[in-house]
Amino acid sequence: MVTYVLRRALQAMAVLLAVSLVVFMGLYAIGNPVDILLPDDATESERVAAIRALGLDQPIWTQYLRFLVNALHGDLSNSFVYNMPSIDLILQRLPATLELALAALFIALLIGAPLGLIAGLKPNTWMDKTITTGSILGFSLPNFWQGLMLILIFAVGLGWFPASGRGQTGSLFGAQTSFATLDGLHHLFLPALNLALFKMAMVIRLTRAQVREVMPMDFVRFARAKGLTERRIITTHVAKTIAAPIITVIGLEFGSMLAFAVVTESIFAWPGMGKLIIDSIVRLDRPVVAAYLLVITTLFVAINLVVDLLYMALDPRTRDI
């Protein structure tokens, strides 16, 4: 186990180093932020002073080495637009995106896993066909359209939920979060549901496929021969067997929720990283974009490691690999 964790840590360091190089070269080889930050009537001396202040007059490899050394010390440079540390901007918005992704993941599992289990246990019935058709719609309908329909129906039409904003936050384990107040949960529900719909459809299809694969296996027939009830077989044997692949996929999808919550956050005016990164791309605020990509990559690597460890805990056969 220790050897495996150390090997994965070294792999993670190599991935982060490669990503830092790709991010830096991709961002700093495109455009000139001075053209956006300075007005059109700026003099040449003002442009030269701005380029020198931003460090853009140095060779590209010098800029990368300075960027890498500063990143190792937690300094990802100041934002060109906000004139404050870019990592601070990201970390200020990260909690809102995290709670949105966690709420969406909870909804996807809470609804998707039972529906997928029902569809897998009752194949080719009207329940299976209805659930499967619903999951196809979840895959097919654009995320932004789903969000607009949720606002139109539940916010504008029925008035049950607010259409935008984060609402009131409260302190929970020392952090300010929407989970701590009813108003925060009220504001959180619609954007979390919007972000969860695609993942819910995926959980339904994955759970159904796993159930259909496991039910004909010998250990299930043996359990029936021993006289175990169908409920005991499903809750004890089948559920434990299908848990490992589902947790693996969902864990990886949680990272994608963090990275691709931009559309949902824009539609519902959710104050997460999505709006910040869009504005930074438009304004060519390179340090903020670089900080965002490195933070997301680090989260992906950490989530992958946690998922692998959970898989090993759930499936002892993988511990010797």
Rank of each mutant, 00 (worst) to 15 (best):
A50V: 08
L37I: 04
A49V: 05
N70E: 08
T43P: 09
I60N: 12
A49K: 13
P59F: 02
R66S: 02
L54K: 03
T43D: 01
W61F: 07
T43L: 10
N70Q: 04
D40F: 12
T43C: 03
L37P: 09
T43N: 07
A42G: 11
W61Y: 07
A49Y: 09
L65T: 11
A42S: 06
T62V: 15
R47C: 03
T62H: 02
E44G: 13
D40E: 01
A50M: 14
I60L: 04
E46V: 09
T62F: 12
S45H: 15
Q58P: 06
Q63Y: 11
L68P: 10
A42K: 00
A42D: 07
L38M: 14
A50E: 10
W61S: 14
D40A: 02
Y64I: 00
D41F: 13
D57Q: 04
R47T: 05
Q58N: 09
E46K: 10
P39S: 09
L37W: 12
L65P: 11
D57K: 01
Y64D: 08
Q63A: 10
W61N: 04
A42Q: 05
D41R: 08
V69N: 07
L38E: 10
F67N: 00
S45L: 12
R52Y: 04
F67D: 00
R66A: 05
N70M: 01
I60P: 15
D41L: 05
L37T: 14
Q58T: 04
L68C: 11
I60D: 09
E46Y: 05
P59H: 06
Q58H: 14
R47N: 09
Q63I: 14
G55A: 04
P59M: 07
Y64P: 10
L56M: 02
R66E: 12
N70Y: 08
A53V: 12
L54Y: 08
L54F: 12
N70L: 02
E46A: 01
L56G: 06
A71I: 00
I51G: 15
L65N: 08
S45P: 02
V48C: 08
N70F: 01
L37D: 06
I51T: 09
L65G: 11
A53W: 14
S45Y: 13
D57C: 07
R66Q: 15
V69A: 11
D57Y: 07
F67Y: 05
R66C: 00
D57V: 03
R66G: 01
A53G: 07
Y64R: 08
I51D: 04
D40V: 07
T43A: 07
P39E: 00
A49M: 11
V69Y: 04
V69G: 09
S45T: 14
L56E: 12
Y64E: 06
L56N: 08
Q63F: 12
F67H: 00
D41T: 06
N70A: 14
D40I: 06
E46R: 07
D41W: 02
I51R: 15
Q58G: 05
A50C: 04
A53T: 07
